[in-house]
Design a protein around this nucleic acid. Structure first.
Length: 194
DNA sequence: CTTCAGATGCTCT
DNA sequence: GAGCATCTGAAGA
């Protein structure tokens, strides 16, 4: 397992989003290690993308994190109750990020089940098993990520990405979810999923 | 398996 | 005050 350094994120956002498929996200919390393999991502590019919170270099309290160095965690609250985890990309000052939309659990499955459903993995319904970590809000719930972790440095120990040497899986390309307001950007093929 | 209503609070205008 | 990069549980097919 080799930790991905800042240079991995200091690149074209769409390339990073594709290259993250198959990589492992590692979270250390409460003395435990939780991890999962990435199955779904989306790219958001502030320079040209009306779906990006920082479109046109819009700078507010919330978008400030997108202007941080590449390899920073951007976490925000959505719909009042859920959180979304992103990885800041591109050279510093280009407000762009990759949204993490899905994982397959690798390590700490029992703890993730407790955090998601309050019960052990053996007690999950088939529906719960099928939809374990297939959504951005679910991922944050399972890994114990909230806005308290917004701005975390991904080259640290609390939250990072790793390459375990497995080849990049084959994947599908499509349009992004839940951005119907974004005019022409609605059609950008910037969603990648297994 | 699918659809659907409802929850919830921050962010920006 | 409107809208949001979502999820759950219940009900129907």
């Amino acid at each position: 397992m080799e930790k991905l350094g800042r240079e991995f994120f200091d690149r074209d956002t769409v390339a990073v989003a594709r290259d993250l498929l198959g990589k492992v996200l590692v979270r250390r919390v409460d003395g435990m290690t939780l991890s999962g393999r990435i199955t779904e991502t989306e790219a958001y590019v502030g320079r040209v993308d009306k779906a990006c919170h920082a479109y046109g270099y819009r700078r507010t309290a919330r978008t400030e994190t997108l202007f941080a160095p590449p390899g920073t965690a951007y976490i925000y609250l959505i719909y009042g109750i859920y959180h979304c985890l992103n990885f800041v990309t591109e050279p510093e000052g280009e407000p762009s990020a990759v949204l993490l939309r899905g994982l397959v659990p690798v390590e700490g499955t029992a703890e993730m089940a407790r955090r998601r459903f309050g019960k052990e993995p053996e007690q999950l319904t088939s529906y719960q098993k099928k939809h374990f970590l297939d959504g951005p809000g679910k991922v944050c719930m399972a890994l114990g990520l909230t806005r308290a972790q917004n701005g975390l440095d991904l080259t640290g120990e609390e939250l990072f990405l790793a390459d375990d040497g497995s080849p990049r899986p084959s994947f599908h390309t499509g349009t992004r979810i839940g951005i119907d307001y974004a005019e022409e950007a609605v059609h950008f093929p910037w969603r990648f999923y297994l």
